[in-house]
């Protein structure tokens, strides 16, 4: 694998003619090409069933494309061995649409999971995890298990788990879908802070066009298996991030 510093200027995510199909006549994604510059903030929009979640799964390495090439942080993931793919995943925080919390772990343990998996010592990360959970309003729910949490609380634990390692890339699937407006705005502020202060690259799939409009983010649209870069709704982004032209 190439040296991480040498790849600092490479796109965080790059899709080159990526296709995914579940058999003939069942194309989910057709030759999608786009890239996300490091430190960019991008929304992924599109109608229900258009393939937003599938595109995200390809980006966080849960699915293998049937054609094309996906590069993360400048490295072609198809050429990575399992060990280096695992290390690449540690640079990505994923917020799943269905949360995917582990039911037998507490809110604190769920949020701390990526640190535990990476072999960190609990005494070193414990304070940070508790502070993060307090920040998302779960300071008094640290020992609660997912079964006793509301949808919004689960969502916030899932978000805490995704951002706890201060990842280089955050991929979120409808991250504000289960929280109220206030919490939704608060979480978006958290994402913007991460984006601004730590240059975290964000790719967020959402239905919430108001949220997209309120941001100054780039927008990718997906429809009928085709990905296109939509006009920036708020302020134009200064970064050069070419995408596949609209059909």
């Amino acid at each position: 694998m190439k040296d991480r510093d040498a790849l600092a200027g490479e796109p965080a995510v790059r899709f080159d003619r990526v296709s995914l199909s579940y058999g003939p006549e069942n194309d989910v994604l057709t030759e999608a090409s786009f890239q996300l510059a490091p430190g960019s903030f991008t929304f992924l929009t599109g109608p229900s069933g258009a393939g937003k979640s599938t595109l995200l799964k390809l980006a966080y390495l849960a699915l293998r494309p049937t054609a094309g090439r996906i590069s993360l942080f400048g490295v072609d993931t198809s050429r990575q061995d399992r060990e280096s793919r695992a290390l690449t995943r540690r640079r990505i925080g994923v917020i799943f649409q269905e949360f995917r919390l582990l039911d037998h772990l507490t809110a604190y343990e769920n949020a701390a999971l990526p640190l535990r998996v990476a072999g960190g010592a609990e005494k070193r990360y414990r304070g940070d995890v508790i502070e993060l959970l307090r920040w998302v309003g779960l300071g008094d729910r640290l020992d609660a298990r997912p079964a006793t949490l509301s949808g919004g609380e689960k969502q916030r634990v899932a978000i805490a788990r995704a951002v706890v390692v201060k990842p280089d890339l955050i991929i979120a699937d409808e991250p504000t879908g289960s929280v109220d407006v206030d919490m939704g705005e608060r979480l978006m502020r958290l994402f913007r802070e991460l984006n601004k202060r730590l240059s975290t690259t964000l790719l967020i799939a959402t239905h919430d066009l108001a949220m997209v409009r309120a941001s100054r983010a780039d927008v990718l649209r997906i429809a009928d298996g085709l990905v296109s870069r939509a006009p920036v709704i708020a302020e134009p982004a200064s970064r050069d991030s070419p995408g596949r032209p609209p059909p």
């Binding site: 390495l61 995917r100 582990l102 990526p114 998996v117």
Partner: peptide, 16 residues
């Protein structure tokens, strides 16, 4: 399998 998948996607090595 859900646990294995979450651990896998969180960056856990196969050996872990």
């Amino acid at each position: 399998r859900d646990i294995v998948e979450v651990l896998h996607l969180t960056g856990a090595r196969d050996a872990f």
